[in-house]
Amino acid sequence: MTTTPAKGAAAHTAAALALGDDALVLSHRLGEWAGHAPVLEEELALANIALDLLGQARVLLSMVGDEDELAYLREERAFRNLQLVEQPNGDFAHTIARQLYFSAHQYLLYGELASGDGPFAPLAGKAVKETAYHRDHAEQWTLRLGDGTDESRARMQRAVDALWRHTGEMFQPVEGLDVDWPGLEAAWLERIGEVLRRATLTVPEGPRTGAWAAGAGRQGLHTESFGRMLAEMQHLHRSHPGATW
């Protein structure tokens, strides 16, 4: 690749923020389940997945700046995460659908980055092993809810339908990541299709990006609930700069 050092550095920063913000924001959303999960095992599972993602975010953000400043002092428009990961938890089925879509994507993406020799290979090689468990967790729940009672099936279908429109954004190329995006998308569609069919669910058919611009998180455009999430995530640090315990 022929890039000037300055352009290469900018691309590296953009890529680290994209991956790091995905992990940070989803980690925070999953953390919101603490104390509210339907059973104790899920309380632990969601918190553990959140912890894995937070660890990934810390490594990625530290590659390009001060992790606390980046997490707590950026404005909404400076975040580069996918709109998918910022979507509210909704009911448990919505959280599982978000996990299903994102973990399948992250597993494939990290797998590809791990096999390369780019700057993200060490982190990706480490994180892909954790993501394998996240994906497994989401797939097992998708099967259980989809192929479950009428109520659980209806809720799981509603959730996969509702979040479908946010999934196209995962395959928009990110500057600084040397990835076969169309190949990634094809593998993702195959995996998700297989899981949904086994769960007796219908694979959504609606558009995966839209004229109404679902999927511009990488450009800093976010959905309404993200501002409220950031306010909660950042207020302690902003109110008490430098506080520790």
Partner: peptide
């Protein structure tokens, strides 16, 4: 298996 995740990751 009861849960893939327990007291620690």
């Amino acid at each position: 298996l009861l849960s893939r995740f327990s007291s620690t990751a």
